[in-house]
């Protein structure tokens, strides 16, 4: 815990917070804190690294840029938005955290998140587990066949991939096709019973986006574009993000 006295002297300099304020649409109300502590009271990361959202915001307001941009606490935030949900001033602390993450040199960001982002860039699946498009197609078709046989009441069930003109473009967390393929099925059943016209894409099917959590805007944009492009090419009307 830093206990040094903070010295305020001379002309105000532009701070990190001022910069973020310009980026966030509407500014994020970053100056409006009433210090009520509602955010800290509901944050799963409160108390970690001797930090909480209120303190983090206060440090930004006081221009303690060096400390703010170096605390590993920003990687403990889950981006759950519980803070902004109850904040009387609707202060966008999650955005502030995000922008601090982006300040970190890429190679110093947490390895797990970084590797998952990098993995998604390896092929057009976007999968943080590196699953290739062919593998995904194979798993889906295989599981579908198995269920149609075992459960005759679902013999007409479909799990289309790259179906042109489908209404919904559905994406899918890679964990299921990779480790729990049976977990894919309940959603298919619902869609089937509801008579929904949907499709997966062979490209951009993976729903997780670790590049977002890594605050790597460029890579985030890349994976998002891959998915969006596939949906566009198929002529789907609605992108259904399941993540």
């Amino acid at each position: 815990m830093t206990t040094t006295t903070i010295e305020v002297k001379g002309r105000k300099k532009q701070s990190f917070k001022d910069k973020v304020q310009e980026i966030i649409p509407g500014g994020g109300n970053l100056d409006l804190c009433l210090t009520c502590g509602a955010c800290a009271a509901g944050c799963p990361a409160t108390g970690l690294e001797d930090m909480d959202p209120r303190k983090f915001l206060r440090m930004c307001a006081m221009g303690l840029d060096e400390e703010v941009t170096q605390t590993p606490w920003v990687w403990m935030c889950t981006m759950c938005q519980r803070c902004i949900y109850v904040c009387p001033m609707q202060i966008d602390i999650p955005q502030l955290v995000y922008n601090v993450r982006a300040e970190w040199p890429r190679d110093e960001r947490p390895k797990g998140i970084r590797d998952s982002c990098d993995m998604a860039l390896r092929n057009d699946s976007n999968s943080a587990m590196g699953t290739a498009p062919d593998d995904f197609v194979f798993v889906v078709e295989d599981v579908l066949e198995e269920y149609k046989e075992a459960q005759p009441e679902f013999k007409d069930m479909v799990a289309p991939i790259d179906k042109p003109g489908a209404h919904f473009f559905l994406n899918q967390n890679s964990r299921e096709p990779n480790t729990e393929p049976d977990e894919l099925v309940p959603l298919w059943k619902i869609l089937h019973l509801a008579g929904v016209d949907w499709t997966y894409g062979s490209r951009g099917w993976a729903a997780e986006n670790y590049c977002l959590f890594l605050a790597d805007d460029k890579c985030w944009e890349h994976v998002t574009r891959v998915s969006a492009q596939q949906a566009d090419e198929l002529g789907c009307k609605v992108f259904l993000n399941t993540e």
Binding site: T3, T4, T5, E7, R58
Partner: peptide, 12 residues
């Protein structure tokens, strides 16, 4: 004393 930062602040 800033009770949120739990630090002293000295303003000139």
């Amino acid at each position: 004393h800033d009770p949120i930062l739990v630090r002293e602040v000295k303003v000139s």
